[in-house]
């Protein structure tokens, strides 16, 4: 029996996937990068050029950098909230022996069956004027009203509700991978629950926390429907701004530059946090 060299087999196996990635991701990105250096012209649409002006326009204008900052802080706040709220749920689910466990997992997954636009519309019904909260407030204290729609709070709440399941599911599988006996050992040695958590569970779950955080951070940075519908016209985030430049103003070069700035910011922060966690993990 003749044996094929191992390297060749591996190459054949990953070849198709590599081709797909090259064709469907890398090539369009290269094209987008090229577009971002073109010049916009209202009548001629896009004029061939090699100019950094789209990037400079963004970076030197406090209006645009302000939108980037808003996007960053919304993403960081929602990621932190996802971690804080997601961990206890994930822990409970992972350690549960109950026959209701799968029902619990299903409850976490179910919201993912509904698109983010529909969920944002749902929140509009809850937070809007005349909505559930507003009516409840008016019923309890006649004459009062709570205006929560079109505020950063509404956007954070909307993104949180969309991203939380991703965090819970990621953390749950990581926590399930941590041997429960390790915790029992810590307990038998007299560690309080808080020490057990801080010194045993948390360090072991750290890579999973990082993965989950990166996942929800990227989702939040790119959120479109939620900020548009819950934030309203006066609240600006990167994805709706990008879409407006691309699809409403037909300014493809500037939209491409915004896309790259958003992508580079997200990738840099993601890579930095991964590197940080890895160092900590090795040290631990």
């Amino acid at each position: 029996m003749s044996r094929r060299p191992q390297g060749l087999t591996a190459g054949l196996l990953i070849g198709p996937a590599t081709l797909v990635v090259l064709g469907a991701l890398v090539a369009p990105l290269v094209l987008l990068a090229r577009y971002s250096l073109n010049r916009y012209d209202r009548t001629n649409f896009m004029v061939e050029a090699l100019t950094p002006e789209n990037y400079l326009r963004f970076l030197y204008d406090p209006f645009y950098t302000g939108v980037l900052w808003t996007t960053l802080w919304i993403a960081l706040v929602t990621t932190t909230l996802c971690l804080v709220l997601g961990f206890p749920i994930a822990y409970r689910l992972a350690r549960s022996q109950s026959r209701w466990k799968s029902a619990g997992v299903l409850l976490v997954i179910l919201p993912l069956f509904i698109g983010s636009t529909v969920r944002a519309l749902g929140w509009m019904g809850v937070l809007g004027r005349g909505g559930l909260l507003d009516s409840a407030a008016a019923a309890m204290n006649p004459g009062s009203s709570v205006a929560l729609l079109y505020t950063p709070f509404a956007v954070v709440l909307g993104i949180l509700s969309i991203n939380l399941p991703y965090m819970v599911l990621t953390l749950q599988s990581v926590i399930e991978g941590i041997d429960a006996r390790v915790e029992e050992a810590a307990e038998s040695l007299g560690a309080e629950p808080s020490r057990r958590f801080l010194l045993v569970v948390l360090p072991l779950a750290l890579p999973g926390l990082a993965t989950g955080a990166v996942l929800v951070f990227i989702l939040a940075m790119n959120a479109y429907a939620t900020p548009l519908l819950l934030g309203g016209a006066r609240f600006q985030m990167m994805a709706p701004m990008l879409f407006r430049e691309y699809a409403v103003n037909n300014n493809w070069p500037f939209a491409a530059a915004i896309a790259f700035i958003l992508m580079v910011t997200t990738l840099t922060l993601t890579a930095a946090s991964s590197a940080f966690v890895q160092r900590r993990y090795k040290a631990a």
């Binding site: 809007g128 004027r129 005349g130 548009l228 519908l229 309203g232 016209a233």
Partner: peptide, 18 residues
């Protein structure tokens, strides 16, 4: 005063008194 991104958000706002 209020600004709406989508036309369909206008009617509920008129109805609710926003």
């Amino acid at each position: 005063n209020r600004t709406y991104t989508v036309t369909d958000a206008f009617a509920p706002a008129l109805r609710s008194g926003e």
